[in-house]
Write a protein that binds this DNA or RNA. Structure first.
Length: 460
DNA sequence: TTTTGAGTTGTTCGA
DNA sequence: GTCGAACAACTCAAA
């Protein structure tokens, strides 16, 4: 029996894995391998921590057959092919700019041995859905309609008679980086993903439309990190939902569609990963933390959750405490950095990517571009989130704020949204606002005005 | 080709 | 307090 390699990356599961089926159909023993690529492991110690947990769980579900190797994939994979005499390497298609370049290098290095991609991390692979003119969609709503109309493939079955290739040397998984003191993150594994999905899809999904915007509740699916690592696939979720209808389910499916939309946008515009997708605000004057100590201080305060705006600070501290931030609060904190502190979005996107266990480059960076007004289907420039109003609307009783900002726990109810108005006048170590809202807002609008005049070439 | 309707997530102001 | 209008202009998608 010959050997085929199953090189795993963002697909750390056993079930509903088309690449596994494709490898099996080659009629050979399967050698599953994960490459510990130093270029990736340095990105985020939090994500490295959850990745290692996911790999341990994967090895268990693969009956101990998973092989680990450290190094550049374009060196490790061809070497392993030669070592075990593999006749092909199977992968799930990678769609990010980094992953596509890496896979091309590996393909080149493999020479005659084929690198075969089956499936993708998405229900419908990026580069599949086009509008009536044959162009990629640039607006979410029509994309999502076409995406729904296209339909989704059925989940893939686990092959009944899998045989793993045995006797190949594997490295020990290194110790995972320690999490910061007091930090707790959700487990990322196929079992944890299915447990959470079962819990969420049973009842909570029906209330998703109403509950998803309230960060004090458990109203979201909290599956983002599982989807990022592929411990569960969106095709599985969509199939489970089957013909179920309702506002909650429709809204949840829309969120899956957003994930697919941003992946599609990035697929067609790889350079938009760290640069403005649209050039309409190319002339925007930003403040730069690397050039200006005052701006550096403001950005540091934002990172630490010490802006003096409770809803913003709760979010930034949730990120540091849990490796995750509620979506509503991601928008508010991102808007604050860009529009209140006047800092270019990649500065914030990098911070999020460093700390989010779900750090997904397409969703994260295009979410930031949406906020900043430089992305596809972006928010209009005059839309500046009011961090106080957002807190009052989406955390009316202040429970979320008190959970993450202990200095404010002595304040009851909604008084927590404006601690400077508190009668006791005691700061309890909580900072005053680092910028004044209406002045910061006016400044943002005036900079946008400058950028637009510059862009149009006008001198008025 | 031209036209037309529409576009995740909001804020502020004034009646 | 509530409510509606204004905030700009542009691009996209489809008829």
């Amino acid at each position: 029996m010959s050997t085929v390699i199953l090189w795993l990356r963002r697909d750390l599961r056993l079930h509903d894995l088309p690449a596994l089926g494709a490898a099996h159909e080659a009629g050979s023993d399967i050698l599953p391998v994960f490459v510990l690529d130093p270029a990736l492991l340095g990105d985020s110690s939090v994500r490295t921590h959850v990745l290692f947990g996911a790999l341990r769980a994967l090895n268990d579900s693969y009956d101990g057959a998973l092989v680990l190797r450290t190094g550049k994939p374009e060196e490790v994979i061809p070497k392993l092919v030669a070592e075990v005499g593999a006749n092909s390497v199977h992968i799930t298609l990678e769609t990010t700019p980094f992953g596509r370049r890496r896979d091309e290098r590996v393909r080149d290095a493999l020479g005659e041995t084929p690198l075969i991609a089956t499936g993708s991390p998405y229900a419908i692979g990026p580069g599949t859905i086009f509008n009536g003119s044959g162009d990629p969609y640039k607006v979410f709503t029509p994309f999502s309609k076409a995406w729904r109309a296209h339909g989704w493939p059925r989940p893939a079955e686990v092959p009944a008679d899998l045989t793993w290739r045995r006797g190949v040397d594997s490295e020990q998984l290194p110790d995972a980086p320690d999490l910061p003191e007091g930090m707790g993150v959700d487990e990322v594994s196929e079992a944890a993903a299915h447990d959470r999905w079962e819990e969420f899809s049973g009842e909570a999904v029906a209330d998703y439309k109403d509950q998803r915007d309230l960060p004090s509740t458990d109203g979201t699916s909290r599956l983002s990190a599982q989807l990022k690592y592929g411990t569960i696939h969106p095709r599985t979720l969509l199939a489970d939902l089957g013909g179920r209808e309702g506002d909650g389910i429709f809204t949840f499916v829309s969120e899956l569609a957003w994930r697919e939309f941003y992946a599609d946008v990035l697929w067609h515009n790889p350079s938009s990963v760290w640069t403005d997708l649209r050039q309409s605000l190319a002339a925007m004057p930003y403040d730069h933390p690397d050039d200006d100590p005052d701006t550096a201080d403001l950005v540091d305060a934002w990172r630490a959750g010490k802006t003096g705006y409770p809803f913003v600070d709760a979010g930034m501290r949730q990120l540091l405490a849990d490796g995750w931030m509620h979506n509503r609060v991601r928008m508010v904190t991102a808007s604050f950095l860009v529009k209140h502190l006047h800092v270019w979005w990649p500065v914030g996107a990098r911070h999020f990517m460093e700390h989010l266990i779900d750090g997904d480059i397409a969703s994260n960076n295009h979410g930031w571009q949406w906020v900043a007004g430089t992305g596809t289907d972006a928010a209009p420039y005059f839309r500046v989130f009011n961090p106080i109003t957002q807190g009052k609307r989406f955390d009316p009783n202040g429970d979320y704020i008190r959970r993450y900002v202990p200095e404010l726990r002595h304040l009851d109810g909604k008084s927590v949204h404006e601690p400077w108005k508190a009668l006791d006048g005691q700061a309890h170590g909580y900072p005053d606002p680092i910028v004044e809202h209406s002045a910061a807002r006016s400044e943002a609008l005036s900079r946008y005005e400058q950028a637009r005049e510059e862009q149009s070439g006008g001198t008025s």
